[in-house]
């Protein structure tokens, strides 16, 4: 449904995208996961025909994003990262505006947006500028869906959104997928990877890895341990300077460590005990997507 082949883009001295290639299958939720400045938005703008690549080609819904941009625009829905609806128009007016632009009506496509719009309907006469973050996001999604697009592009729809609203938004995406929609979505939140069929981890304009979330985790090629004690900050410092430990990163109430061959949990336990740590626990764990991302960043740093 989406086919990206060796796409590069630079802004002056900055290489925003370096030979990025990937494919998105029909009916799939593909997550592009990476921090701000990784190149996610540049890639979205190229795929939605708003920016020309310097090198490489991309096809969406069978059409070349450069040669067939006009036809393609009618077939895709795009929700940009920055809220870009008319703040002075009401919910209903914004929706009617976007329907008109695409030569359709709200009525003709109401089924597409019904489950989302029903949550907005009680406030339909409220101006978009006066809506809460969660509601703005739902309205923007309705506007991106009003012309029944084949492919949906969502650029960081959940950034700055609290965990409850984020979860609700992903529930909506799962529902759209059920109806057969193909979705390319970007996010800086690593935990959202598990809501995607496949993900691409992106950093500094490069795709570090593409796989299913489970596949990415299974590629993590070294043992990972979790360590806890009563004093987190001191624990991290002591772990970082320990001779048998390679990396130590805080993960919630534990510290995740990767280790050298000389590592034995019993020895570490004794060493931490000698430094007066209380309630020490050391146990092996399965990596999360965030562990994998950090691991890939570490190898990228030291080639």
């Amino acid at each position: 449904m989406i086919r990206v082949n060796q796409v590069s883009k630079r802004y002056g001295a900055i290489e925003a995208l370096r030979q990025v290639s990937f494919e998105v299958n029909p009916g799939e939720i593909f997550g592009l996961i990476g921090p701000d400045g990784a190149g996610k938005t540049t890639l979205f703008r190229i795929l939605t025909t708003l920016l020309l690549p310097d090198e490489g080609t991309a096809r969406v819904n069978g059409r070349d994003v450069v040669a067939n941009y006009k036809a393609l625009r009618a077939e895709i829905g795009y929700m940009p990262g920055r809220f870009s609806l008319y703040q002075d128009l009401t919910i209903a007016e914004n929706l009617a505006f976007f329907a008109t632009i695409f030569g359709t009506t709200i009525e003709a496509n109401y089924e597409n947006i019904r489950p989302i719009y029903e949550q907005l309907a009680p406030f339909k006469d409220r101006r978009a500028g006066k809506l809460s973050g969660g509601m703005k996001q739902k309205l923007a999604l309705c506007c991106a869906l009003i012309h029944s697009p084949e492919v949906l592009f969502l650029d960081e729809p959940t950034t700055g959104v609290d965990p409850v609203s984020r979860k609700e938004f992903w529930d909506i995406l799962a529902m759209l997928k059920q109806k057969g929609m193909t979705i390319l979505v970007s996010t800086p939140y690593m935990d959202e990877a598990t809501r995607c069929n496949r993900v691409g981890l992106i950093q500094n304009g490069e795709l570090l890895q593409i796989d299913t979330p489970a596949g990415i985790v299974s590629r993590f090629d070294q043992p990972l341990w979790a360590v806890t004690s009563d004093e987190m900050y001191r624990l991290i410092q002591d772990l970082r300077t320990h001779p048998t430990i390679k990396t130590a990163y805080a993960f919630g109430d534990t510290v995740h460590i990767t280790v050298k061959h000389s590592f034995y949990p019993e020895d570490l336990f004794a060493d931490l005990g000698a430094k007066n740590h209380q309630n020490i626990e050391i146990f092996p764990i399965t990596p999360t997507i965030e562990d994998c991302f950090i691991g890939l960043m570490e190898t990228q740093k030291t080639p």
Partner: peptide, 23 residues
């Protein structure tokens, strides 16, 4: 919200700075 959108390593380095300040 000091760490919105930053990469996972920087996010943790940022918290190191917070701990240092609290220290």
């Amino acid at each position: 919200e000091p760490t919105g959108g930053v990469d996972p390593i920087t996010r943790r380095q940022f918290w190191d700075m917070i701990y240092e300040a609290a220290d």
